[in-house]
Computed example of a mutant assay.
Amino acid sequence: MSAGMTQLILVRHGRTEFNAENRLQGQLDVPLSAEGVAQADRVAPVISWLRPQAIVCSPLSRAHQTAAAIGRACGVEPVDDARLKEIDVGEWSGLRAEDLFRDDPRYEAGMVSDSDFRRPGGETGTEVMDRIAGAIDAIATEHEGERVVVVSHGFALRTGMCRLLGGDYTASRAWGGLSNCSWSLMDRFGDAEMARRGLDRRWRLRAYNCTVPAKPQGPAGGEGEGQAPIVGV
């Protein structure tokens, strides 16, 4: 990594039972499922190959558990940061998306519109993307010149990355969703490095929604041989 540049490895937490049931988690403290724990254990050694110097995570247990698995592989203790929590969906917390589509016209109206809206009793998308982008930028500034893992949530990371690149809520809707335990890479350039490279933007996206799939089943139902490939989507 060149001088004057900080690299962020942005990781979404592993799968939860709420993910499997298509329930809105928001800021509910839902732990990883058994599958989510396995996902975290698979991604941890891959992240460790990048040799991060720090790990910062949302304090919600699904993110902290994922960060802890990465931390064990890297020999780095994760630090919680409440600014990295998922969007607060208020009254919709814990409800299934299909039930909301059927029973609450506010949900369908919000989901099909490019305009931002406030989740009842919760946050707007713009509030979240500003919160997350500000937190990521502050973390990068604190760890200038280092490689840092940030473990957070799908909506939060997707919109936060979009904001760092100059996009708004409408632009963020064109970004694909982040898979559980996926990672994305962003570079942050210092002032001198920006001037040296002739850049007018501080942030650069290098990879998005990369995953480590489970090993495929062999012909007889056993695990396939060899290391599972790394897939960038």
Rank of each mutant, 00 (worst) to 15 (best):
A82N: 03
C162L: 02
L84K: 07
F101S: 07
L157V: 06
L165Q: 01
A171R: 10
A97G: 12
M194L: 09
Y169R: 01
G94K: 06
R96I: 11
M129S: 11
D187E: 12
A133T: 05
G145S: 05
G198P: 08
R201A: 01
A109W: 04
T126S: 14
E108P: 02
R188D: 01
E91M: 13
A192F: 04
D168E: 10
V148A: 08
F101V: 13
A171E: 11
R197H: 10
W183R: 06
G110I: 03
G166A: 05
D187P: 00
G125D: 07
S93I: 13
A97H: 15
R163A: 01
D116E: 08
F117W: 12
M111W: 14
L205M: 14
C181M: 06
D191Q: 14
T124V: 08
S113V: 06
P120W: 10
F155V: 10
R119L: 08
A174R: 15
G190I: 13
Y208D: 05
T159F: 09
R118P: 00
W183T: 08
D200L: 08
D81V: 05
E142K: 12
E108W: 12
D114S: 12
D104L: 08
G154H: 10
D80F: 03
R147M: 11
A97M: 15
S182K: 02
E108F: 08
G94H: 10
W183H: 14
L185Y: 08
P105N: 06
R201H: 06
G134H: 05
R118N: 03
F117Y: 08
A135F: 06
W92Q: 06
R102C: 03
S115R: 14
L164F: 02
V89A: 03
S184A: 04
L100I: 10
I136A: 02
L84M: 13
D99G: 12
W183F: 15
V150A: 02
D200N: 11
N180W: 04
E144G: 11
V128D: 02
A195S: 13
S182F: 11
A171S: 13
T141Q: 13
I139S: 03
T141S: 09
I136H: 00
M161P: 00
R102P: 05
F155E: 03
G121R: 06
F155N: 04
S93E: 15
A192C: 08
G176T: 15
R147W: 12
R131A: 11
S172K: 01
M186N: 01
M111G: 00
P120G: 02
E86P: 09
R196Y: 04
M111F: 13
S172I: 03
Y169K: 00
G121L: 03
K85Y: 10
T124H: 05
D168P: 00
A109T: 07
R83Q: 14
H153Y: 10
T170W: 04
R158E: 01
G167C: 12
L157G: 02
G121C: 04
I132G: 00
E123S: 03
D130V: 06
R96V: 14
I139M: 06
R102N: 09
E127R: 05
R106V: 11
E108H: 13
V128Y: 04
D88R: 09
M129D: 09
M161S: 01
G190R: 14
F101M: 15
V149D: 08
V148C: 06
G176W: 12
E86N: 09
R119G: 00
R158Y: 03
D130G: 02
G154C: 11
